[in-house]
């Protein structure tokens, strides 16, 4: 579903992402881990077509982000770190607008919006103005916006940041449901970034750990925590080792 091929991004002299490759299959939920500034957001932005890679390319649902950018973008639902909301719009008109620019056919507009609101628990908020919603509900609108066109791939940048524990639990459950849906619903492939380790343990089956722009770990969660190691230890060890190497070189 997602294939990153030697993705790199340079800003002048600084390399934000260096030669990152990975593949994610249908229905997988992958946790993107790493300290701040490791290149998680930049990698995600390249996958969504917001930033062009300096080098390398990526395939989203078999569409090359350079060769067929419109089809690739159509296949992605993206929740950026800062929620892309128009505060003056109501939840429903906002989601209808997003559905329209995501190429949802006119006939299916209403039902797509209803379905997205239902999955994100927004049925009673349809007429509320987004600017007046609480942080938790705004986060849900952000998530509804990402799934309104029923994309094959979901890319979520820190989906639970700023939420209270109860809301975090709800959003995590929602993400799990999106990857293993009931009959008749689309199975989404999910990449989510976070630096909250328990979050990865709660929803992801596979972990990609980034540090200083490089991919340092890419393994199923079970394998990583085998032998009693905690994700915490792995995170600290891998990112620290990278620091030592960087200083040595």
């Amino acid at each position: 579903m997602i294939e990153a091929r030697h993705l790199s991004k340079h800003y002048g002299e600084i390399a934000a992402v260096r030669d990152v490759s990975f593949q994610v299959g249908r229905g997988e939920v992958v946790g993107f881990l790493g300290p701040n500034g490791a290149g998680k957001t930049t990698t995600m932005r390249m996958l969504t077509g917001f930033l062009p890679p300096s080098d390398g390319t990526a395939l989203i649902a078999e569409h090359d982000i350079f060769g067929d950018p419109i089809a690739a973008r159509r296949a992605v639902g993206y929740l950026p770190e800062t929620l892309p909301l128009y505060p003056e719009m109501s939840v429903r008109t906002y989601l209808e607008f997003v559905a329209r620019i995501k190429d949802v056919p006119r006939g299916g507009l209403r039902s797509s919006v209803e379905r997205a609101m239902e999955r994100c628990g927004l049925e009673h908020m349809a007429r509320r103005v987004i600017g007046a919603l609480s942080r938790g509900f705004r986060q849900r609108v952000g998530l509804a916006q990402a799934i309104v066109h029923d994309p094959a791939v979901l890319i979520l940048d820190e989906p639970t940041v700023g939420l209270d524990p109860l809301q975090v639990r709800e959003i995590r459950k929602l993400i799990r449901d999106l990857a293993s849906p009931q009959a008749g619903q689309t199975q989404h492939t999910v990449i989510l970034s976070t630096h909250i380790l328990p979050e990865v343990e709660a929803i992801c089956r596979r972990v990609i750990l980034m540090s200083r722009g490089r991919k340092v770990v890419d393994a199923p969660l079970e394998e990583l925590v085998r032998g009693g190691r905690t994700l915490d230890e792995i995170f600290v060890r891998e990112t620290a080792r990278d620091d030592v190497e960087a200083e040595a070189s």
Partner: peptide
Amino acid sequence: ANGTQELLLTSPLTIWD
């Protein structure tokens, strides 16, 4: 300022749209 630019640029829109 809203961050909605990211929504527009990751949607299947052309810049001319």
